[in-house]
Amino acid sequence: MSQTVKTEQDQPIGKTFSFMFVFKRYPIIPALCLLPVIICGIFGPLFYPHDPTMMNLGSALKPPAFLPGGEFSYFLGTDHMGRDLLSRLIEGARISLLISVFGVLLSGLIGCSLGMLAGYMGGKADEVIMRVVDAQMSIPAILLTILLAAALGVGVTTIIVAISVVFWTGYARVIRGETVSLKQREFVVLAKVTGCSKARILIRHIFPNLISTITVLATLQLGRAILIEASITFLGVGLQPPDTAWGLMISEGRMYMATAWWIPTFAGLAIMATVLGSNLMGDWLRDKFDPKLRQL
């Protein structure tokens, strides 16, 4: 190519190097929200300043370091039992991440398989699966989770199972719709003509075309899962005291709102940042997978 030829690609929007351009291209804000949570979740035990469950009533209700009376070693202050809030936040990230990731994976597995089945088979299978979805969607998610948690007994596994049972419907509905439109595409007809079996068509030809949708959905669901976990823990049917969870911190700190606002506030901020981050990441991924916006 000669230097004189300048195609349009040489000077995209990026020539006027704007912040918007960078934000569109790289998921900076979502990463800023999510990365600390992920790092804390995986490597937390390596660097928390105190044992998150160790009580020390002598230093109870200490304010954060930047307020008068705060100590630097308890950077975000302590709760009513004298436990270090920063350490508890880091430990809470582990639990939240564990529950939301496995909840989203499990519900995705159930929802996507059933959605693909309903969409591809049509007829009776479709009717049955989608009516179950409709029925379940009419029950409020929180109510159903509480019921399940109460029936199965409290614990991390229970919450994961409850979240999966509540969330699979969201996947099933979207994936069914996508599958219905994909199965009418010519390449599926070609696969049939070539002699593919139904299972082969579903796994090899339809599933890969769904991956982008599933990824976006999963990211969006991640935030919802964290919120649900925090909500039911706050309501008292989720995780129980020896465990550390953000919902639990808010629930315990509620009584001290007036005197020690920092106990529920930092946990609330952590939840907000994570949910916001995963929602923004979902939006960014959706734009990224959309071929019309991919050029940006």
């Binding site: 010519e186 390449f187 007809v189 070609l190 002699g195 030809h205």
Partner: peptide, 21 residues
């Protein structure tokens, strides 16, 4: 199904959409 593709094959109308992207 075993005959399709092996004994009888078909070329479809629209080459633009007949291949899996």
């Amino acid at each position: 199904r075993q005959w399709r593709g092996k004994r009888i094959s078909m070329i479809l109308q629209d080459p633009l959409t007949s291949l899996n992207p």
